[in-house]
Design a protein around this nucleic acid. Structure first.
Lengths: 207, 207, 207, 207
DNA sequence: CATGAATGAGATTTCATTCAT
DNA sequence: AATGAATGAAATCTCATTCAT
């Protein structure tokens, strides 16, 4: 497993022109992969979109897989940072969750390709795929554990909770953002929060 | 010759031998798609696994896409029936959900290929993919609406709830069944139920 | 060269049912070959058109080539007989030619597939192709020689004349019957006769 | 990937090496098509003859059909120019026809593949086929009309005459050049001219 | 006689990657 | 850095023909 090691054959471009070309290729790849998926996208599609010659691709990336992995890692990092920044100011768990969910929906609204890319990752590089969710889950578990210790939410296995919450976010993002092509209306967000927070708080008629 | 899509028609097998061959191909396809994913599986992989000649494939299916769609539809039907039967006896919503989740986990434990197949569907045939989740959601929404009307759970938009619950099931299935290759331990199920049912019941400290 | 020997493996049908099936296949073949040409027509196209099963084809013809040759021979025979009958009553060369040309145009009007079939013959079986034109030319040469000896037309190499006249018929048939899908108007026939007969008679300002 | 025919575009070669390879493929195609006909020639036959790899073919032509059309258009242009140059100096119709016929026979003597290629065109691309003869006929009709107006030949529908003359040339080319593999002897040419010119001049015993 | 299933050789086409300039 | 040409392995698909019933 070496999906975290940086591409062997190809070094980072030193000059500005190179930097730009490399970025153009990454953006083109995101668009192309988002449109037709990894497997139905050819290198030619990417270079055509980036408006460079075929051979240029291999100046920057050693393979199709490599640019894909790079893309997943970059965007994954962007997303996590976006969410972290969004929840930074809040201490109450309800506020944290609402801010987190909202910024997640915003992000995928701006990066609709993201979904398809992550989903394909499973087939391109299973390790990368698990790494992606594991990173997320780890952050989530950490936050939940703190909230539990602070008595903000009840004491349920945070690993289980993390995957529940990620699943909720993922499916709502699919249903409302991807399918309807818009961020969920406040009413939807409210309903989700209602459901989620009761679940986290516990209580209710349950037993 | 292929003038205006006449030759593409593939008639159902008329003899027993044909029936058997067709089924062998479907089973082989499930195994192969599950192993390597749709795009990295070749027709040759399928026919080799089914132990028939290459050409035989095209006697029964006009393309790789066609056998894939057929497979998704068949297995989707199986899964929905399995869950329906599992929840049939229960009227309390908590029992229904527990039975539903459990049978879902059982099913994918027995059909691990299912997950990868459904996930790839998005790229093979987007309509098929949405159809799959829409079918599920419709059933879920229906059941939730009844529970709401019966006062068993609180009044939240059932469409939202359905996708929350489907997301939870999906991600837990991924996390515990696919990754750990076993059905979730009772403790995990208990935690999920705790979380979910409180969410559905409402109440708690929720402001 | 054995293109004139009757199919080896397959015997002529003895019973009426067989006769009918065989004829249905021949007719279907003519239609199919005429529509898309020999190479782009599959056995399946023929059997589908004839409304019999795939395997049935090989009960009557040992190969695709065989049914094609059979067809060429049959239709060629029909055409030659048609023309012979049409010219039978006439003794004046002008009448003979007019009757011959007219019946030729009528024939291909009724068998538009004929043209494409004969033209493909060159690529299916070169011997058959030459045989076809040789047969025609022989008859023509024979008739012309008699006319020369009778002093009806002037003394030019009848082989050359035969191919000139066949060429004229062929190209006019293509231009007027095939392309316009109708037999040439009397005015066209008149012009051809004018041209041809002067050519055969000789005289004029020539030399 | 092939979403909506983007990838089918084949750009003209930009470097000398590419130019040469493209020409090699065209020449190889002519030879191969001439030998076995369009349908029985595979892309592999062409690339083998051109001594390039299979894939190289698709760098220059999107399909077998495409290289065929290109070939027909190129050679058709060559032939028409050859004939035009041959008849350029003459004003008397007899001289024009003799020069035209002779140069036509010479051309196909040097390009025997031409015949088979044109004949197959009907099945490869009917439009191309008709275009080919139409182009020729148009030139012929033009020349004949002028000759009629100049009183050099008699007043018969030039369209009819054009197809008569083309038919004669075609069939004589087939009979003498293709079958005997040599240009027709002077005696044959003389006979043809005798026949043709009388036909064009008119007069004679014609009632 | 007739049929439907099965075959496997061969054709077209795509495409990630390498190479020479 | 960038480019366009070239490659060949592999994939999809077709189809004449054979076979068993």
């Amino acid at each position: 497993m070496n999906h975290l090691s940086v591409s062997r054959t190809v070094s980072r471009p030193k000059r500005q022109r190179g930097q730009r070309t490399r970025q153009r290729l990454l953006d083109a790849a995101e668009a192309a992969f988002g449109r037709h998926g990894y497997f139905e996208t050819s290198i030619t599609d990417i270079t055509r979109e980036a408006d460079v010659a075929q051979g240029t691709f291999y100046v920057y990336f050693p393979s199709k897989k490599a640019i894909f992995s790079e893309l997943v890692r970059e965007r994954s990092h962007d997303l996590r940072r976006t969410i972290q920044e969004a929840v930074a100011g809040f201490s109450d768990r309800r506020d944290v969750e609402r801010a987190g969910f909202t910024s997640f929906f915003d992000f995928i609204r701006g990066h609709p390709a993201m979904y398809r890319i992550v989903r394909q990752a499973e087939f391109v590089d299973p390790n990368l795929f698990r790494w992606y969710y594991r990173r997320f889950a780890d952050g989530y578990v950490h936050g939940l554990r703190e909230a539990i210790e602070a008595g903000q939410i009840r004491n349920l296995d945070p690993e289980v909770l993390a995957f529940c919450l990620m699943g909720i976010a993922d499916f709502l993002g699919m249903r409302y953002v991807l399918w309807e092509k818009q961020v969920p209306k406040p009413a939807v967000i409210d309903a989700v929060m209602e459901f989620m927070m009761s679940g986290l708080d516990g209580a209710g008629r349950t037993k």
